[in-house]
Nucleic acid binder design. Structure first.
Lengths: 143, 143
DNA sequence: ATCACTGCAAATTATTTGCATCTCG
DNA sequence: CGAGATGCAAATAATTTGCAGTGAT
């Protein structure tokens, strides 16, 4: 019951719905939408309400269990990966892809050791790459 | 008629509405919303329609005259500054503030000279800082 | 037992669209 | 003149809310 512990640690009541939703998200590779999480959850809990999924994902995100981003078109996407990483936002396919690069993370975190932003509590610093997928059939690749 | 030239260069028909809207945005310091641009435009053209402002700002953004971002809550904001720069996204005040730092820009552009993202056409790379304003009355300051 | 969570339906917000009319090039 | 822009109202999409009933601690 790994998820139950995660929920309790995050001060969230461990309901059946939440356990199922959390384990679904943790298994997701790439930035699921609320609707997508809802559709997967419905297979296990047919009576689940879409509103509950909305509320639950928001609760998870604001308790730091997962993180939230928006596509170029502005829809919510959730991300179970809390490690420092950037995102590639594709405008024409409305996707979000992880951009993970340790060298870049080191570069950025070193840079921000000397810089200060006053009157602001920084929660996350991330590098964003925005553009268009060239071949919508093929995957985006980093090298 | 600086704005007229800008419009024609960008292959856009230079209507009165567009000239007014463009000059308003170019004067804006910080990331206006569609509603805000609409309210300012209405002072000069009382008959302007909100839909026109929506369409116009989208047209400007897709022709590269201005750029578009989203607040943490997902609403559109426009930015007349096309130079490379990052943004500070404040979640609790739903603001976007420019983060301009030449040293950082150099660091990032050097880094991406060696890295490639395949099957993707990069339009913009930017550093994003996400967090909360501490004192909502005061401004965010960078040093 | 209590207080937070769930499910449903209705409400809200930002944005888009269809279409008749008008205007720039 | 003709393609594209405008203005209005109605439509859509994503998300949120209110509230009565239910469940976890």
């Amino acid at each position: 019951m790994k998820v139950k512990k995660l929920l309790l640690n995050a001060q969230l009541k461990a309901t059946h719905q939440r356990e199922v939703i959390l384990s679904i998200i943790l298994d997701c590779k790439n930035h699921p939408s609320t609707e997508y999480v809802y559709s997967l959850t419905k297979k296990q809990i047919p009576s689940i309400s879409l509103a509950t999924v909305y509320k639950t994902l928001e609760a998870f995100a604001s308790n730091g269990l997962i993180s939230k981003t928006l596509t170029v078109e502005g829809q919510a996407r959730y991300d179970p990966n809390l490690d420092a990483h950037g995102h590639i936002y594709s405008a024409n396919s409305n996707e979000i892809i992880d951009y993970v690069d340790d060298e870049l993370n080191t570069l950025i975190s070193n840079f921000f050791k000397q810089k200060k932003v006053k009157n602001f509590h920084i929660k996350k610093i991330s590098l964003n790459i925005i553009g268009d997928k060239i071949d919508t059939e093929k995957a985006i690749e980093i090298k």
